[in-house]
Write a protein that binds this DNA or RNA. Structure first.
Lengths: 330, 330
DNA sequence: TTGTAAGCGTTATCAG
DNA sequence: CTGATAACGCTTACAA
């Protein structure tokens, strides 16, 4: 069917010019002046003969692959596909392509897959996770520039781009305070990185508003609906219960909804709720729809690509802000 | 730092053998007999000198890239990352790599991205979508083998692998019948492909059980919680209301929960609910946890890779079965 | 069983 | 402004 792929030689021969000329035209090299007429003819022949450059040959000759490796556990998670989207968009704008490798969330990083990426000569490596966690990469990773997204290198070797959890916690709490609440509970998640920041932000907002921090209003548990339910139930039963809940994750908020409902409380009239993550499927469909903090996934993905392309240091330890998505629960 | 990459020549020279010998050993070519001792020395040198094959050079020489293109809108969806996982696992087992390109769910297929994949010389193309829909691919796609996953080619040019919706509908309904229900409502979604099959399965199950199909119990709307809520509300108000609901999506089931709750009905005691999709975040965290039909995403992803590698026709129009995930709602 | 040499399809370096 | 010619790092007949 495909009578043989047409090569650069074919189009050069077809036009009676040299291969270099064709190459120059196709790569639009501005450092070399080529007659407009020649260019036109080259492009014409290209589309006429149906020529398509051969990426591997190009890489071999130029020793540039324009390939970026993205190792991640997010493809199989309901979460943060935004990182892929953002990274890919940024890469595409630079003529780069992502080689995405999805790994299990527990395997910190599969060596064989990394080895494969290096054989493909990726020119940079992004390591992204669904949850904000600590990771450790195989030594081989150091052969190319590396940036972590939404995770931190426990060995301290690579820069990482993570959400500004403190700011998120602050924003959520400020929002609640702005609506007149003074007794605001924090139903936090246990996980180290995200929890600590969210809590600091929560405390800062209260402090700034001159509200005393009541330790009885701060609890934590696993990041799921079950824990959200149990913790909320407990906290609503206390004397002098909160009028607002800031939940560490949307899933916890999901559980909080059930607990509130069972306690006969209306949302947001009797108790306001703010979540965290903006997991669309949960947040948008809860009734009432959940007000929550969105994480800057796309932005982080794009920033990672930019970091790989430019000044790595500019992004080292850099933190990116999410934002409040106001719906009906607070 | 990296003093210069070590090439095959380097290790050949280091060992005093020819490059071909090294190549044969590294590719473990069984059609050529090489002294065990030689093999050992080669591998030793490889790890000692830190040699890593150059994929592009290899592709150029062998005209095999071992690259498969995966164009999809699922990366940015909460859905079906399983397709990626399954496809990648199957590809990896064959020494192949996926070049994943994520596109917006509305763009049926971006031509520029496809062009890029073809320049990279992908040896096959998988086009996968989050929802079971109809799509149309650019002509250029036909230059390589193509399989669609979870979608169907409206132009009828390519085979596709889709879930067996009829079987899913049948399974869900059978389950409800098995629990003694006879008045089972179908809160279906509107979308063409998935809805029709689920409905046929529902009807077949009823027919087989000798239960009359009551048109008043079959309704449909958009695939979200809002519609699920409204439709359920309406159907529960009818005289002789159903004792069980089979919802076209988990999100619709989410809405159904709210409607049932507001009607003062307990799940599953007063009304049983079965969903569809097994969107973990919804299904597992609803209270009570939702019994639902899981779609065979990983299986479809893997099947696509296999189809691309072998007999395409064996998979043409092939349909894969999902399964019931029994939780607490029915 | 191992070596030689000719590509694979580009880019890059120099002359012209 | 254009054209030879040598890489790029590997696979693969074909010889030895």
């Amino acid at each position: 069917m495909v009578s043989r792929r047409v090569s650069m030689d074919d189009i050069a021969r077809h036009l009676g010019v040299s291969r270099s000329t064709v190459s120059f035209v196709i790569n639009d090299r501005s450092d070399i002046r080529i007659a407009e007429e020649t260019k036109r003819r080259v492009w014409e022949a290209v589309s006429e003969l149906g020529y398509r450059p051969h990426a591997a040959a190009r890489s071999l000759a130029s020793s540039r692959t324009n390939l970026l490796g993205l190792v991640t556990d997010i493809a199989s998670s309901p979460f943060g596909g935004g990182i892929i989207t953002g990274a890919q968009r940024a890469a595409w704008e630079r003529g780069q392509v992502l080689l995405i490798v999805s790994v299990d969330s527990d395997a910190s990083a599969d060596t064989a897959m990394l080895e494969m990426l290096l054989e493909r000569r990726v020119e940079g490596l992004i390591y992204a996770t669904a949850g904000h966690i600590g990771v450790s990469l195989p030594d081989a990773a150091s052969e190319v520039p590396v940036v972590l997204v939404h995770c931190e290198d426990v060995d301290g070797r690579y820069p990482s781009i993570v959400p500004d959890e403190e700011h998120g916690g602050y924003t959520a709490t400020r929002h609640l305070i702005g609506q007149g609440h003074r007794r605001i509970a924090l139903i936090n998640l246990d996980a180290h990185f995200p929890a600590d920041g969210r809590r600091s932000g929560y405390e800062r907002a209260l402090r700034e508003a001159g509200i005393d921090i009541d330790p009885a209003l701060v609890v934590s548990g696993s990041a799921d609906a079950g824990a959200g339910y149990a913790l909320t139930q407990r906290i609503l039963r206390a004397d002098d219960p909160p009028t607002a809940l800031f939940c560490g994750t949307d899933r916890m908020a999901m559980g909080a909804y059930d607990a509130a409902r069972e306690a006969g409380l209306r949302i947001p009239e009797d108790v306001a709720v703010v979540g965290y993550d903006d997991q669309e499927i949960v947040a948008a469909y809860l009734r009432p729809a959940l007000t929550t903090i969105a994480l800057p996934f796309e932005e982080m993905g794009a920033a990672a690509v930019e970091a790989l392309n430019g000044d790595m240091d500019a992004f080292a330890g850099s933190t990116m802000r999410g934002w409040l998505v106001e719906r009906a629960s607070a």
